[in-house]
Amino acid sequence: MVKRCVAWVSVGAVVVACAPSLNDTVSLVTAPRILAVQSIPAEAPPKGKLNLTALVVDENGPIAADAIHWDFCTARNPLANLGPVNPACQEDGNSALVPIGVGPKAAGDIPDIACRQYGPEVPEPKANETPGRPVDPDTTGGYYQPVSVFAPSSSGQLVGIFLARLSCGVSGASPTQSADYNSRYRINENPQVTSLTASGKPLDLDTTGKTNAVAAGQKLQLQVAWPVCPVVDVCGDGVCGPDETKTECPKDCTNPQGCAGAERYVNFDLSSATVVDEREGIHVSWFATGGSFDLDRTGTDGSDTDTNSTNGWQPPSQSGPLHMWVVLHDDRGGVGWAGYALNVQ
């Protein structure tokens, strides 16, 4: 990236302040990396089972992740640490880690004390101490169980931290508000890529075994799409919305399904101390083993009703195979991705 400078004119002289030119392109995959981790379901209560899958790639495409080992991290994050998790969670072999599996996939039951350890419930007191302070939620009202992912690779061990969303209820609300929240809250659903087009032409997923041909050096306008989620609840649309109940709409809410796009959900707003309706934003991470994207990240916020996001991509000038991935994140920690095999011609 070109050295970024901002300039202004003062008395006929141009003065500038500059940031250094650092390699800040994360979308180009040139070495083994963990690109994403998905849990199914995207949200679960304590004792709930999580099925975890990792997307591990290198410059040649997806790689087998048979040696990945997965751990639940049990170390709480001190207030003095401004990172998302306790640093112990990224130390392979740390006593705070509880193994849950090995391989590209793993399954584990969320610890039954997760909402006390990482949620709004009063934590277990230490010996001879009064109970401590519960964990604070994020802006979506979420609490998360850290999952440590260690993937050996040719370039050393890859370390990833995945935050599995917990269903722990709400903190700071009155009993009436808690009841309202609990009745209306719908657990998160992972977002899903419904299509990726390149200058209007849909690309085939790599899971189909097909390779997509692209012209060398010819810039493409990519657009990724995700499902449309209802902005108002309509019984029979297949989605059990916040304002629908099993009684009123058994069709949608007997076996409630979420929406793999920008879902509506309820949250407890601390400022107004009320239960409010909110809508997810979708954030898109772009990756490829060659070429260059205009932007590493694109997306929408909760007020944006678009169900797609665009980005420019310049294929390499030399022909050859390459791989591309698009990873979607929603505001509540849900993840989904799609991979594509390309052939530059």
Binding site: I34, A36, L163
Partner: peptide, 11 residues
């Protein structure tokens, strides 16, 4: 390390 949830690296 990589925070896969937010697609950011943490120092």
């Amino acid at each position: 390390y990589y925070d896969v949830t937010t697609d950011t690296y943490e120092p």
